[in-house]
Every structure is written in C-alpha cells, then in structure tokens.
Computed example of a mutant assay.
Amino acid sequence: MYLFVNGQVIKEEEAALSPFDHGYMYGVGLFETFRLYEGHPFLLDDHFRRLSKGLASLSIDWKMEKEQVLDALQALSDANGIKNAYVRWNVSAGIGPLGLYTDTYSKPTTIVYMKPIPEEMGTEKTGILLKLRRNSPEGVDRLKSHHYLNNLLAKREIGNDPTREGIFLSEKGYLAEGIVSNLFWIKGDTVYTPDTDTGILNGITRQFILALCKKNQIPFEIGCYSVEALLEADGAFLTNSIQEVVKLTEFDGQAFKKEQPFIEWLQQQYKLFRHSLWSKSEL
C-alpha cells in the first residue's frame, strides 16, 4: 500500500510518526472515511467541511484547498492502481511537548490511507443490542476522532462476523447508533432516526439520507427513542460512507418484514448519485 504523508506519496513501510505526535500521545486528531467510485470521491465537500470544522474546534491549524485534495487522491489512486477505493483521511495534531497542550497546533500530521474495495458490498445485517453503552462525546458534539476505545470494546462484544452490527444505547438508555454506522427505522410511512442530542456522530451518509427524504417529501422524525420504538418498527437500516445503506433483517432476535421497498429505493438512489455528487446540497 502507498500512503500520502504530509504532501508525499510513499510506501507504507517508509511511513513514520513521531512519538511526540499528540495524535498518538493524547488522541488529538480527526479523520474522515469515504469512497472513490471510479475515481470520484462521493460527498467529498461534506466530509471536508466536517473535518475542517472539527479540527478548528481542536485548535489544529489545518487547511487544504479542494484542488490539492483532489491532486493527492489522484496521486494515491495512481500509485495504488485502484479507482474504487476505501479512503481514510487522517489529520493529527502533530508534534507537541510532553504534557497537555492548550495552544494552537500549527504543524499537523496528514496521512491518507487507501485500499481497494469491491464496488458492491453486503446489503443486509443483523442488529445486536449492545450491553456496553455509548459513551458521551468528549466535547459538545461527537467528533470523528482518534478516541475509538468505546467502539473497539463494542466490536469485541459481538465478534468479527461482518453480517452483525452492534447497536448502542446512550448512557440515558435511548437508541443511539451502530458501532460504525447511523441507525434508521421505518414505521408506517415515516422514517425515524436518533437525534444528535443522544451523543451520536452526525454521519455524512446520515445527512445525505435525510436530505433525500426532504427532497422527495418523505416524512421523517428525529428524536430520542426507546428500544421499543425499534422493536415495533416495520423495518430498519444502517448507513455509513463505506457500506452505504444496509438493511437490518432483524434486531435483538426479532425479524423485520422481508419486503422493504423504501430501503431498496434508498439503495438505488445511492447508486444513482455516488459517481457524481460532491455534496448533499446539490440535491
């Protein structure tokens, strides 16, 4: 694998990180994961808008123009010889003194990872109610940060089966999100999803799905819901930027209806836009 590290494309074995990088020492860093579809980075503008806002909140002085980002992705795509890819764009604070640092980080570390991915992935999963609760965000909002221990422990709880996804409850007992996904369900003609007030990540694909609902005048509600709301649903699905829209066949041992035309419609809509859209605002 070739990586993009601070402006250069290098082999993975040549990559190095300072032991004083605060992304390693204290978890001060953020990342975005997204896909290339035949070279097109789907919803790139939305991902980098979120990344830039989050980095600013951490006092990490980082900026790249869109043209620079696209050049980096093209160079990395060419080096790895792939056009359909998983991309992780990682920005950490960079080198700092030993101890908690309160000033602005002016020399962050940028690392971009890219690996091949099949254009079509699994479209169904089983939902498992986790015993472990979703931890509260470190700050006001949930950032896509290096603090991933809560997710890792949840993954260990359910194991490595790729057809299973753990569903978190918030610390207050409300439905929250999956280990690596946002959660939606359908009851009647209305789509439901937990509010970010539950401490979930406001996923880019989550935002795209809500924008699709708004554009097509599909009723949706955002709020704080108990487990019963999901158990009584007609159907449910998960979203993230790598796996797209994934239907839940069951939750906590209770099966949903096999026929889910709305979820199938969403999956088709995703395919329609994924080779061309830069932002949900283009809808």
Rank of each mutant, 00 (worst) to 15 (best):
L210R: 00
P162H: 06
E244T: 05
S226H: 06
I186Q: 07
K214Q: 15
N202F: 07
P219L: 13
L175S: 03
L183R: 00
L169P: 08
D252R: 02
D195S: 15
I158F: 08
N160V: 12
F168G: 00
R164N: 10
L183V: 01
I204W: 04
T193I: 12
A255V: 10
N160S: 13
C224K: 15
F220I: 05
I158M: 09
S226P: 03
F220H: 15
V191D: 07
I204E: 06
K247M: 11
L201I: 05
V246C: 07
S241N: 14
S181T: 13
W185M: 04
N182E: 07
G223A: 14
D161R: 12
F168A: 01
K247R: 15
K215V: 11
G159Y: 05
E244A: 09
F237Q: 00
A211E: 10
T196V: 15
R164L: 15
G178Q: 03
K215Y: 12
E177Q: 14
D189G: 09
G223N: 12
I158P: 05
Q217P: 03
Q217G: 03
P219T: 14
C213L: 15
L201E: 05
D197S: 15
D252V: 02
E244D: 15
F237L: 01
A229E: 14
C224P: 01
D197V: 08
T249I: 12
F256R: 08
K172T: 11
I242S: 10
